[in-house]
């Protein structure tokens, strides 16, 4: 780093620096200071275009009534309407409810599976098997679940054959069963995401510590809860955050399987914004909902995500 002749081998050979050369050197010094910014700039500009620009656009649009004609300024009317819109609050609540139940289930199942798999000689085989659901397109998964539970009623049929129920389950008319269906589809598809990460973390732990505890007579489960789990905390945090981000944006399954019903009981916030904007063409209102989501996202990002990623790296 101490050698300033970064501009190339040619500059290093020219020993007595002439004025022209010196100005070239100064410029190259300035260039050198700017280089890291120049390297990162294209990516940042690109991302600003899809986050900052839409953010500002959404904020401006949220103060207007926008349907098909010209925009009409309406002040805070969209927000006022939003704050008393039970469908909006319902969508926020559903997103939170479905998301948190799903996330907890995925985390517990993935930990249990990882605990049993990471010392297994066939861990690679298990990993490939468990990965399968994750590699299907979400729209395909949505249709799998729609068919099994709603259209072809395989699930009901199996329960009837076992003798647990008498008639077909009316899943579509039950809010809780519809929610459970969305949760089940998400758990099925995305538990492997956490499983893969947890197995890697368990395999990466210090074997000597494990072995020492083992020789002291500690059981595998004691080792897991007292040594492995605390060690995995930062990893679990990062993995859960990444999952949580995707769960809160849940759209495909809602759009295909439940359409938000019955009675908006499974409508998530993404589906609410989609429906308001692109089905009722009430873009100003949809933008107001987007802005509120954006604020929530930024707050959570600053509070939780930054800390989790910093601690996972150190």
């Amino acid at each position: 780093m101490s050698n300033p002749s970064l501009s190339g081998a040619g500059a290093a050979q020219a020993a007595p620096a002439r004025p022209a050369q010196r100005s070239f050197k100064r410029r190259s010094k300035r260039l050198k200071a700017a280089l890291p910014y120049l390297l990162v700039a294209p990516a940042v500009i690109y991302l600003l275009m899809i986050t900052l620009y839409p953010g500002i656009y959404a904020i401006i649009q949220s103060f207007h009534e926008v349907r098909f004609g010209p925009w009409r300024a309406v002040g805070f009317a969209n927000y006022q309407k939003l704050f008393v819109d039970y469908q909006f609050w319902g969508a926020l609540w559903n997103t939170f409810l479905i998301g948190s139940i799903s996330l907890v289930l995925q985390c517990v199942i993935a930990l249990a599976l990882a605990f049993h798999a990471y010392r297994d000689p066939w861990v690679k085989g298990w990993r490939i098997l468990f990965l399968v659901p994750m590699l299907f397109m979400p729209s395909a998964v949505a249709f799998i679940y729609k068919l099994i539970f709603l259209d072809a009623r395989i699930f009901s049929d199996i329960l009837i054959r076992i003798g647990l129920i008498d008639g077909n389950l009316a899943i579509q008319s039950s809010t809780w069963m519809s929610r459970a269906l969305l949760i089940l589809a998400d758990v099925w598809q995305w538990t492997p995401f956490l499983f893969i990460i947890f197995v890697a973390a368990l395999q990466g732990q210090d074997e000597e510590v494990e072995e020492a505890a083992r020789l002291d007579g500690a059981s595998w489960s004691a080792i897991f809860f007292n040594i492995s789990l605390p060690m995995m905390k930062p990893v679990i945090a990062v993995a859960l955050i990444l999952r949580a981000i995707d769960i809160t944006t849940m759209f495909t399954n809602v759009f295909i399987v439940t359409k938000g019903g019955p009675a908006f009981g499974t409508e998530t916030i993404s589906h609410f914004i989609y429906r308001t904007g692109f089905k009722f063409f009430n873009f100003g209102y949809a933008s107001a909902a987007s802005v509120i989501m954006l604020i929530i996202t930024i707050v959570i990002a600053q509070l939780v995500v930054k800390r989790a990623f910093v601690s996972a790296r150190s």
Partner: peptide, 29 residues
């Protein structure tokens, strides 16, 4: 360099943007 951590975190944080939030503006864009 100055601002490196913030730039890195900004890039990371765009991952958290729900598609639905930017869907309307992106559509018009």
């Amino acid at each position: 360099y100055r601002g490196r951590e913030d730039i890195g975190f900004y890039i990371l944080s765009t991952r958290m943007m729900a598609p639905a939030i930017v869907a309307v503006p992106i559509f018009f864009l």
